[in-house]
């Protein structure tokens, strides 16, 4: 009975994913109880919760997707050459470089983000260098800006972008590149017509692994941002745990999930069917 093997996984998913999701969906249409007691809500099937929440937090939604998009593009710009170098040019240092890519995972996500606060801080090396070069004024700071938030996200999700791209580049048969050269392509053309199209699965996987968590991220905005750089994750966090407004938080969570799902579906459809060459 092969289905028996699915049982543990199915149970896990039902208990820790499906049930909470159903619970969240149910919470999202509740309204505050008449008693006005904190944390007490009754089911009224008020779907207008969604509209209200979206209207109120539309700027944070937009900001989340813009930051996530920027971080994804930046991470792609950094990760692709990195993955390319590791896959094709690193020789015997390949494993060491791969370990270096994964190394940040040995410390906590939170800790690394706080470290970025130091790096970008007023006394930190980045500000010092930029000030010395007169690229920024003596009073300009970098922390608590949207720039710092996007930088933090780019940094934090870089390995998720690098590894899938590396994996698909590493799989490319070097003879295909030789064949391309043999058929009158110079290095640039070979990259455009052979290497890049063949690395598309990695690029798609990497951008999704970066964009999805980045869109819902709140740690970077909380640590490296200011009140005007709040992302939707921060709103959900405060609605849930500070204001204790479960229905709005649940409605926002669902809206975020649905939006990501739609964007991702469109993206996969496009990158899958469009002829990329």
């Amino acid at each position: 009975m092969p289905y028996l093997l699915l049982l543990p996984g199915m149970l896990w998913l039902i208990i820790f994913f499906i049930l909470p999701l159903v619970n969240l969906a149910e919470t999202s249409t509740k309204t505050r109880a008449a008693s006005q007691e904190t944390g007490e809500f009754i089911q009224t099937w008020r779907f207008a919760n969604y509209l209200d929440a979206f209207k109120e937090y539309q700027p944070q939604f937009t900001r989340s997707f813009i930051y996530a998009l920027l971080a994804t593009l930046l991470a792609l710009a950094i990760a692709y050459p990195l993955a390319y170098a590791i896959a094709f040019k690193s020789g015997k240092y390949k494993n060491i470089l791969l370990i270096l890519v994964i190394a940040p995972f040995f410390t906590s996500f939170l800790l690394r983000t706080i470290a970025w606060k130091q790096i970008l801080g007023a006394e930190g090396p980045v500000v010092f260098v930029l000030r010395s070069l007169h690229l920024i004024g003596p009073d300009t700071t970098i922390t608590a800006t949207s720039f710092a938030v996007v930088m933090g996200m780019t940094y934090n999700f870089l390995p998720f972008m690098t590894l899938p791209i590396y994996a698909s580049l590493d799989r490319i048969d070097p003879r295909l590149l030789e064949a391309s050269g043999d058929l009158y392509s110079n290095g640039v053309t070979t990259f455009r017509k052979v290497t890049f199209p063949l690395s598309m699965p990695g690029v798609v996987a990497g951008t999704l692994l970066t964009f999805i968590p980045a869109a819902g991220d709140y740690v970077n905005a909380a640590i490296l941002g200011n009140p005007t750089t709040k992302m939707i994750g921060n709103v959900i966090d405060s609605r849930f745990f500070r204001i204790v407004d479960y229905p709005t938080a649940a409605a926002l969570s669902f809206t975020l999930m649905a939006t990501i799902l739609i964007l991702v579906t469109i993206y996969i459809r496009r990158s899958g069917t469009d002829e990329l060459v």
Binding site: R175, L176, A179, D182, L198, M200, L276
Partner: peptide, 13 residues
């Protein structure tokens, strides 16, 4: 000069 490679090296995409 053109080459017919050992494992053909046809472009899979």
């Amino acid at each position: 000069v053109n080459t017919v490679f050992q494992n053909y090296a046809l472009f899979p995409h």
